[in-house]
Design a binder for these strands. Structure first.
Length: 490
RNA sequence: CGGGGUGUGGCGCAGUUGGUUAGCGUGCUGGUCUGGGGGACCAGAGGUCGCGAGUUCGAGUCUCGCCACUCCGACCA
């Protein structure tokens, strides 16, 4: 078993942190709050990126790139927006350094002060809508469907690898539409893409919902979200899709002429998912033996490890192993044959197990005699001996099974940890233990704030297609027409 | 911003009332035996003890100042 590695029961936060470090996904950098994403972690992110990028393009979006810096004045144009982000902005004030006169190193050159400070983007609505003003004149220019892959900076007080870092990678979509209906449809379409990705690729069930006003994106009319439940009973917002109405069009004066030659403001959406998805992915499936990755996002889906004593044995095994690797690769499966002589088989078993590789094939002298392969599943830790004949079909099926099994496991975990609660006492008790708590809420910000104050729980989502049901608010006792999801969140 | 804590080989740590050449685990290098779940043994390399001042015959250890990191709160994707 892995040494120096916390279990989930001992200390969940520590377990998560150890996992990220020891599975070689990321580490803290010399810059406070900023992480270095290591090759193995980045490989997972690249898969996430590639998959989502294709989904966006398949639905008509194009990629573009906007500046890292945003003139300070842009922020004051949308009141709610600046309100939401002002407290966590990094600001560039100078453009030059010089040698210190006392020889102590370099210092900021006070003569090189910027006329107007630049904000390092915490999100790009402002610079993008300032640009869109010039791109949009006619209904013929609409819809404008743009996505950007970028880094953003939010100066968070407390950071955690992947879950909350001062700088993070994400994609942000920014679209402009002629009508309200079309923009709302876009918001939903993207939400569906996010949910689809989470469930089919990450094997992570999510609830689609809309945010309460208090949890809404700064500057949005409505914020839709996908919420997932982590193993410690806390909720994680995994993606958001915002209907921005005409807020930004008005703030940045983006108008178009309709067919009827009438000048109107355009309607907007924005939506994003970030490297936080990595955090979600890690927490969704991993266990006390390390990372568990769904096959569809695993950089290495199958690892083959030779077991041998003499060079002649390795030679014979390698011949078989390479043949198997090639048949698997022909099926589009990513395979690593680890024939390094610098590490022992047992060491490799642990290594790949820790890194969450879904399937491990081991071939030793015994297998060579019998024409077999030992196949070990990461999700169940089960080992079985299969015939080498037609192993590629077996592997293909197993990968599908693992993907499905991880989803089902995560789904039943969520179901087991979702509760309907009707009294305040029960609510407090339940929230303390974790999980999604479905309860009635009177719809006021005041009540929401009081509940947060008392229990640290927030409304994670008002589920879409929520069944209407008359009830009484958990706190105020006022009438309510539906249950909303409360939970403590990341 | 408030309250704790920690800075000692790459990493994780110990270092007693101040006292010779600063240790341990792990990792690293070489070698021999090994190899179906993180192997054993042998031999090595690797240190301005966070920075600066002070007390002292003598400071990793005591005092003061500074810096960095980290944990707990408030804030947040």
């Amino acid at each position: 078993m892995a040494k120096d590695f916390s279990t989930r029961d001992e200390n969940y936060a520590q377990w998560y942190n150890d996992l990220v470090i020891k599975a070689d996904l990321a580490e803290n950098s010399a810059v406070r709050g900023c992480m270095v994403i290591k090759p193995y972690g980045y490989a997972i992110w690249e898969k996430i990126q590639a998959t989502l990028d294709k989904m966006f393009k398949d639905t008509g979006h194009s990629n573009a790139y906007f500046p890292l810096f945003i003139p300070k004045s842009f922020f004051s144009k949308e009141a709610a927006h600046v309100e939401g982000f002002a407290k966590e902005c990094a600001v560039v004030t100078h453009y030059r350094l010089k040698n210190a006169e006392d020889g102590s190193g370099v210092v900021v050159d006070d003569d090189a002060k910027l006329e107007e400070e630049l904000i390092i983007r915490p999100t790009s609505e402002t610079i993008i809508w300032d640009t869109y003003r010039n791109w949009i004149q006619s209904y013929r220019d609409l819809p404008l469907l743009i996505n950007q892959w970028a880094n953003v900076v939010r100066w968070e007080m407390r950071t955690r690898l992947f879950l909350r870092t001062a700088e993070f990678l994400w994609q942000e979509g920014h679209t402009a539409h002629a009508t309200k209906e079309e923009a709302e449809e876009e918001t939903q379409k993207i939400l569906d893409i996010y949910a689809d990705f989470a469930e089919k690729w990450m094997a992570m069930p999510v609830i689609k919902g809309v945010k309460s006003p208090a949890e809404r994106f700064a500057g949005a009319i409505d914020t839709y979200c996908i919420e997932a439940l982590m193993q410690d009973g806390k909720a994680l917002q995994a993606g958001t899709s915002h209907f921005l109405g005409q807020n930004f069009a008005k703030a940045f004066d983006v108008k178009y002429l309709t067919k009827e030659n009438k000048l109107e403001y355009v309607w907007a959406t924005s939506w994003g998912v970030s490297t936080r998805l990595m955090g979600a992915l890690i927490m969704a499936h991993s266990d006390d033996n390390g990372l568990v990755l769904p096959p569809k996002l695993a950089p290495i889906q199958v690892v083959i490890i030779p077991i041998y004593r003499k060079p002649e044995q390795l030679e014979a095994i390698s011949e078989k192993a390479v043949a198997i690797m090639n048949t698997l690769k022909a099926k589009g499966i990513s395979v690593k044959y680890d024939d390094r002589d610098t590490q022992k088989p047992g060491w490799k078993f642990n290594e790949y197990e820790f890194k969450g590789v879904p399937l491990r094939l081991a071939i030793g002298p015994r297998d060579m005699e019998n024409g077999t392969v030992e196949v070990a599943r990461r999700d169940t830790l089960e080992k079985e001996i299969y015939s080498m004949t037609d192993i590629e079909t077996k592997v293909e099926h197993l990968l599908e099974q693992i993907q499905e099994n991880l989803y089902q496991k995560a789904l039943s975990f969520r179901e087991d940890n979702s509760f309907r609660v009707d009294t305040w006492d029960e609510f407090k008790e339940r929230i303390e233990k974790g999980g999604f708590v479905y309860a009635h809420w009177d719809g006021t910000e005041e009540t929401e704030a009081k509940i947060k104050e008392a229990t640290k729980a927030t409304i994670r989502a008002i589920p879409l297609n929520n069944p209407l049901e008359n009830g009484k608010c958990i706190l105020s006792g006022n009438p309510s027409k539906q249950r909303v999801i409360f939970a403590k969140a990341y």
